[in-house]
């Protein structure tokens, strides 16, 4: 299921040649509507849920959602990308929150 775009937060990465999500999507699925300057996914069924765009978004405007046919309403998983670390905050359908933080790069 493709990322949902929070239209209040997304500014289409104004000023960049391409938005961060359209830059990284391995399936060429993310694009920006040049009238509204909001990102959108051009083919909802083709998303792999790899979350590359979610991690790349500087505005935290994107969210991966599991299709309802496969998972219940409503769980969230949000990455916070730091310098050489990543923190994931996961909230399940009962509101239970789990946080995971670890090093994703060595200091070289």
């Amino acid at each position: 299921m493709p990322p949902r775009v929070d239209l209040k937060k997304c500014n289409g990465c104004e000023g960049r040649d391409e938005s961060c999500c359209e830059e990284v999507c391995p399936g060429d699925l993310m694009a920006v509507n040049e009238e509204t300057m909001k990102a959108f996914c051009r083919s909802l069924r083709d998303c792999w849920d790899c979350m590359s765009c979610i991690k790349a978004c500087p505005k935290n405007a994107l969210e991966t959602r599991i299709p309802y046919q496969l998972g219940y309403h409503r769980a969230t998983l949000k990455p916070i990308v730091g310098k050489n670390t990543i923190t994931w905050k996961c909230t399940d359908i009962f509101g239970r929150v789990t946080t995971y933080k670890y090093k994703n790069r060595l200091d070289v």
Partner: peptide, 14 residues
């Protein structure tokens, strides 16, 4: 690290 959205899937099944 490999398939982050699977963690979300488990959460969506509670």
């Amino acid at each position: 690290n490999e398939r982050p959205s699977f963690v979300l899937f488990l959460a969506s099944r509670g």
